[in-house]
Measured scan of single mutants.
Amino acid sequence: GKMTGIVKWFNADKGFAFITPDDGSKDVFVHFSAIQNDGYKSLDEGQKVSFTIESGAKGPAAGNVTSL
């Protein structure tokens, strides 16, 4: 299901971020390909987002990341 959280930090050079979920679970890795914005895919620290949890090769990662 959809979860919500806050972007903890975003590394534009490497194209990934971490989200701190609102439910208090541990921070979730985000690859820029999961960001659903049109055009430039970036996130801002402190931004509120919704996302799903996908199981990636290196463990859980956020999918369908959308700005709220």
Rank of each mutant, 00 (worst) to 15 (best):
K58I: 15
G59F: 12
F29V: 14
F51R: 00
Q36S: 08
D22S: 07
T4H: 06
I6C: 08
G59D: 14
S42A: 11
S50A: 12
F16T: 06
D27E: 08
V30W: 15
Q36F: 09
V7D: 01
I6K: 06
E45N: 11
V65F: 02
A17C: 11
F51A: 01
P21W: 03
K26D: 09
A57R: 05
S33G: 11
A12M: 10
V7A: 00
G5F: 01
Q47T: 10
T52P: 04
L68W: 01
G39M: 08
K48D: 02
L43W: 10
K8Y: 02
E54K: 02
K2H: 11
F29H: 06
V65N: 13
S33C: 15
I35N: 02
A12K: 12
Y40K: 07
F29L: 15
G56E: 15
D23G: 06
G39P: 11
A61G: 11
G24L: 03
A57N: 15
T4N: 05
F18Y: 12
G59V: 10
S67Y: 03
H31R: 10
S55W: 08
P60R: 00
D13E: 12
E45G: 06
G46I: 02
G5H: 00
A57P: 15
T20L: 05
Q47P: 01
I6W: 06
S55E: 14
K8M: 05
V65Q: 12
F32E: 06
V65H: 12
Q36G: 08
T66V: 13
E54L: 02
V65K: 06
Q36V: 11
G46Q: 02
S42K: 10
V30F: 13
L43V: 07
K8T: 05
L68A: 14
A17H: 00
A62Q: 12
I6L: 04
I35D: 03
S25H: 04
G24E: 03
V7W: 03
T66D: 15
K14E: 05
P21V: 05
K26I: 06
Y40N: 11
Y40G: 12
Q36K: 06
A12F: 08
F32Q: 06
K26Q: 09
K2I: 12
K41A: 10
F29M: 15
G46D: 02
L43I: 09
I6F: 07
P21K: 01
I6E: 03
A61Y: 14
A62I: 11
F32P: 02
A61I: 14
S55A: 10
K41N: 12
K48W: 14
A34W: 12
G59T: 06
V65R: 01
P60Y: 02
P21C: 05
D23Y: 04
V65D: 14
V7C: 04
D23L: 02
G1S: 11
L43T: 02
A62R: 03
I6S: 05
Y40S: 09
D44W: 14
S42I: 10
